[in-house]
């Protein structure tokens, strides 16, 4: 009962907050609602006993990425809101597609089968601590995908520096 209640709370609040983020007129207010949204997502991870992911969610998304959003919003200096009704007129089509996807997902959910229980049970994670279990898995079994992801990030970093430097030289 208690876990269901917690999950229900998070699910409802996350949905509600995401609606608030996209409907606010003031972009800074949107960013603040998004901050609260990220904390709720972190809470959801905590609820799944994934404490490391929860902390990283707050540190990386709330602490770094969202602050960059905030910088962009603040430096754009949006004093007046854009007074355009809609950018595109095809929202009924989008609504139909979104509803169809929702129906499809709800049908698909009925036939979902849980995977076989593996080595990483809740008790195992609790004993090993989540950070340690995740680290060992990332650096042994999933080392190759992990390194590929790191390489892609490195390319992005170097690309950003190259772009910034080229502007400086000219």
């Amino acid at each position: 009962m208690l876990p269901k209640l917690f999950f229900g709370y998070y699910a409802v609040v996350i949905l509600f907050l995401s609606m608030l983020v996209v409907t606010r007129k003031n972009p800074v207010h949107s960013v603040m609602w998004m901050l609260l949204l990220f904390f709720h997502i972190a809470g959801l991870y905590l609820f799944l006993n994934a404490e490391f992911i929860a902390a990283i969610q707050v540190i990386v998304y709330a602490g770094a990425i969202l602050v960059l959003f905030l910088f962009v919003v603040l430096l754009l200096n949006l004093k007046e809101e854009l007074k355009i009704d809609r950018f595109i007129g095809s929202w009924p089509a989008a609504f139909v597609i979104a509803s169809a996807t929702f129906v499809l997902v709800s049908i698909a959910l009925k036939s979902m089968v849980l995977g076989p229980p593996g080595k990483y049970t809740v008790d195992f994670i609790k004993q090993e601590t989540h950070t340690k279990a995740l680290g060992q898995l990332l650096y042994t079994e999933f080392l190759f995908p992990f390194e590929i992801a790191s390489l892609i990030l490195l390319v992005a970093v170097i690309g950003a520096i190259v772009l910034a430097k080229r502007k400086l030289r000219s």
Binding site: I59, A62, H130
Partner: peptide
């Protein structure tokens, strides 16, 4: 908690 130090970083970013 097991992630004490990370929690401190999260709060300082807040």
């Amino acid at each position: 908690i097991n992630i004490g130090l990370l929690f401190l970083f999260a709060m300082s970013s807040l």
